[in-house]
């Protein structure tokens, strides 16, 4: 049986659609429902290959922020009869928005999406390859910053860092992007280029996924 393939653009279309639905809908049940549907969508898109550990850690890091939001919201609306419910709604809403964004950013095949957008002429080649190079550069900058911190600690024997250590990092970032732009110029980057990777066409699995999502959105609005 042929493997079912979804367009990588679903990693952009679905979360953006559900974030809009979540933002304009009302009530904690709807917020949780939106988040749940997004998780199911992501399970389908990634073939059940989610990094649950990472998602768990992210949920934990949200707790202090949500607790602070709850307390602030509660004391702001304390004269309101339903202060607890209102602030709980707000917290779940924020949790849903944060989780949906984080889940998709973490699991999306970024390079495939960029190439797909460039090939479909939805994104300019210069911006697309610039973004791709930036995504590549994150791990390089993290390593470089670690080295700069260590060099500073070893040299000055201090536990606190001076704000000056940001300077070599900025230079490293500027130099990296400069060298990369030379590399792109050197190999003749231009908007009329070809691609060896084929576009993943939008096909019936995508339509089924979209129809299913639209049906759920319709049900949510019918009952709310």
């Amino acid at each position: 049986m042929a493997k079912i393939t979804f367009s990588p653009l679903n990693f952009l279309i679905l979360p953006v659609s559900w974030l809009i639905v979540l933002t304009i809908s009302d009530g904690w049940i709807n917020y949780l429902l939106c988040t749940m549907v997004c998780i199911i969508n992501l399970l389908v898109l990634t073939r059940f290959n989610l990094n649950w550990k990472k998602l768990g850690y992210f949920s934990l890091t949200l707790i202090p922020a949500l607790a602070a939001t709850y307390l602030t919201g509660y004391f702001f609306t304390i004269r309101n009869n339903s202060a607890e419910v209102t602030t709980l709604n707000l917290c779940i809403r924020l949790y849903g928005i944060a989780m949906i964004s984080f889940m998709y950013v973490n699991h999306m095949p970024r390079e495939k999406i960029m190439l797909e957008l460039m090939q479909r002429k939805l994104l300019s080649v210069n911006i697309g390859f610039g973004l791709l190079a930036t995504l590549n550069a994150f791990s390089y900058f993290a390593q470089e910053f670690k080295r700069i911190q260590l060099a500073y600690q070893m040299r000055f024997q201090k536990k606190c860092y001076s704000p000056k250590i940001i300077f070599p990092l900025l230079v490293a970032a500027a130099r990296y992007s400069h060298n990369l732009s030379i590399s792109m110029f050197n190999r003749g980057l231009n908007p009329h280029r070809n691609y060896i990777n084929n576009i993943v066409p939008v096909a019936y699995p995508d339509y089924i996924l979209w129809i299913a999502n639209l049906s759920i959105i319709a049900i949510i609005y019918y009952f709310s």
């Binding site: 470089e144 080295r147 700069i148 260590l150 060099a151 500073y152 070893m154 040299r155 001076s162 000056k164 250590i165 300077f167 070599p168 230079v171 490293a172 130099r175």
Partner: peptide, 14 residues
């Protein structure tokens, strides 16, 4: 102990 990194710019502050 002191270490010299491969990238010399990692050592510059001033």
């Amino acid at each position: 102990i002191s270490i010299l990194w491969q990238n010399p710019e990692a050592h510059f502050i001033h």
